[in-house]
Amino acid sequence: MSSDALVRQYADFAYRVALGVTGGEADAADATQEALVSIWRHGADVPAERMRAWVARVARNAALDLIRRRSVRPQPLAGEALPDPACPAPGPDALSEAGDVRRELAAALERLGEPFRSLVVLRDVEGLTYDEIAETLSLPLTTVKVYLHRGRARLRAALTASVPDLVPQ
């Protein structure tokens, strides 16, 4: 597969990983661009069975590097301010639009922190196997599972607090 084809094939995947880490579309786009350049250069040398884990690691590292360089916290989606946690949770009507749901999910993920955020995104959004996640994050398998279990619990609690109708009871 050519380098261009690799970039096009994994662009959405890398973008979603970066978006899950940064929480902002602009930062995710910048991180994805850097990740895609790396994929274009080195992707042909990576075995196919390890490609998803490798791309996820490249995109995540690019996003984390971007956050470190800017020394700022991840920006909210579309430049909109995050809802005040002290405010009462909006009703279902307020979240009727998909964009609002997406922003709420991104905000909840952002509050998870690393590495819980990356684990939840890689597993429950992108569907990577535990082994792939362990390779991506360079963590033992059991540690990955513990992190994931706790990350899910935190995310569930965050969504229950902000969007209670979104989380099944």
């Binding site: 261009d4 970039v7 096009r8 662009a11 959405d12 973008y15 978006l19 274009w40 429950d124 959004v125």
Partner: peptide
């Protein structure tokens, strides 16, 4: 149980301009 909840995030696609700029 969060797989379905997080489904909207799976609809995100990379802007074509990012792919073009990266290439």
């Amino acid at each position: 149980d969060l797989v379905d909840v997080l489904a909207p995030l799976r609809a995100e696609v990379c802007p074509p301009a990012v792919v073009t700029a990266a290439l």
